[in-house]
Amino acid sequence: MRLTYPDSIRIIRLPCTGKVDVIHIMKAFQKGADGVYVVGCLEGECHFLTGNLRARKRVEYTKSLLDEIGIGGERLEMYNIAASDGPRFAEVAKEMHERIMALGPNPIRGALKRKKAA
């Protein structure tokens, strides 16, 4: 298909989104990620039956946690895309890239830079 999507996105491969835990997402933000989105299979299509449904619930919980600490839950999102749906994957990547660009950098990024420099 040779579709293009923003190069700001770094893909972390997992066997199933059911593997995603709250702490994985939190660590990504703690390390300075400006946004995170979890892409799972379509609902009802999970090879492990409920992995993607569980992931969505964890993402929702993590969003509330990010809101609580002022990082902002809108920096995190869950999408369901069929493995064969390349165009939708590229579209979502663009959508998320634009959302994060509008939100600006992770609020702790400055502190992380200062820590690194010290």
Binding site: D21, V22, I23, M26, K27, F29, Q30, L65, E68, I69, G70, I71, P107, I108, G110, A111, L112, K115
Partner: peptide
Amino acid sequence: KKEVEILASALTMAFMKEGRE
């Protein structure tokens, strides 16, 4: 253990956001 990890991460970030360590 898991909740300790999550809270540690959350508190660290909340402090960093306020410019403190």
